[in-house]
Amino acid sequence: MESQERRTAQRIQLSAVVNIRIDDQLFAAGTDLRDISLDGINVNIDKALPINRICDLEILICGPSSELTLRTKGRVLRQDANGAAVKFTELDIDTYLHLKNIVLYHRSPERS
């Protein structure tokens, strides 16, 4: 049986690292980002994250000549052998605009 796609926002592949902090405890330092959207992220992580907990996210995007750090909050939705999904719960205007531009720039041409 096929599972129904529930995502409403387009996800893109992006090379970045993520730091995840819950209640001042660092759960992930330099974790690889699997994909990102305007709604949230999916990260490669082996350490168990508490489900439904609010976390502080720091997303570090490094290019050949610049670096961008996005800081926001999210809620851990689920975790499995492939990683963890975190939904954004707060996006300030600057972070939202950066994410929107990143997603627009990296989206596949067939979905334009």
Rank of each mutant, 00 (worst) to 15 (best):
S37V: 06
S37Y: 10
L38F: 07
D39S: 15
D39K: 14
G40S: 08
I41Y: 06
N42T: 01
V43K: 02
N44F: 12
N44Q: 13
N44V: 13
D46N: 11
A48M: 12
A48H: 10
A48F: 13
A48T: 09
L49G: 03
L49W: 02
P50C: 01
P50A: 08
I51N: 03
N52E: 13
I54H: 12
I54Q: 13
I54M: 06
C55R: 04
D56F: 07
L57M: 07
E58F: 06
I59L: 09
I59P: 08
L60V: 15
L60M: 11
I61Y: 11
I61Q: 06
C62Q: 15
C62Y: 06
G63Y: 11
G63R: 08
G63V: 05
P64T: 15
P64I: 14
P64S: 15
P64A: 14
P64V: 11
S65A: 12
S66P: 00
E67P: 00
L68S: 12
L68W: 07
T69M: 14
T69P: 00
L70M: 15
T72N: 11
T72G: 01
T72V: 06
K73G: 01
K73R: 15
K73M: 09
K73Y: 11
G74D: 00
G74Y: 01
R75F: 01
R75N: 05
V76A: 03
L77A: 08
R78W: 13
R78A: 07
R78V: 02
R78H: 14
D80F: 05
A81Y: 12
A81H: 13
A81E: 14
N82V: 04
N82R: 14
G83H: 11
A84E: 01
A84W: 09
A85Y: 07
V86Q: 01
V86S: 02
V86D: 02
K87L: 11
K87E: 14
K87P: 00
K87S: 13
F88K: 05
F88C: 04
T89I: 15
L91D: 01
L91A: 02
L91V: 04
L91E: 01
L91C: 03
D92T: 05
D92E: 10
